[in-house]
Amino acid sequence: MGSWVEVASLEELARRKRKLVVVGTQQIGLFLIGGTVYAVSDVCVHKQRSLTKGTVLNGQIICPGHQWAFDPQTGRAADREECQPTYDVRIEQGAVFVNPSPRALTSEER
């Protein structure tokens, strides 16, 4: 499935902390949180607002629309059933790559 796509430089993420990238038809939000780069679908599962227009607080991604809080690793919404798709990220020589096939959650993450 899906091949890795270069989407950003680590340097610009270090500066802006988050970035919206488009891979094929998917809008993916990149977030630099505590030194790790995470990739989640930018389109909120709740009301389709853009997560990169939100904020990061206490390690969670906060949607600007209705303040839903997502775990950047699993995409899981706090206190809710819903889950935001997430993507694998790879860093190579200062470049950020994502695998545009949404990850399946591991058994511990479910």
């Binding site: 607002r49 227009k53 939100g54 904020t55 607080l57 906060i62 949607c63 600007p64 303040q67």
Partner: peptide
């Protein structure tokens, strides 16, 4: 207005 991200921080 159109800055829900700020509200999250303000709430804290």
């Amino acid at each position: 207005v159109d800055r829900g991200g700020d509200i999250a921080v303000a709430r804290q």
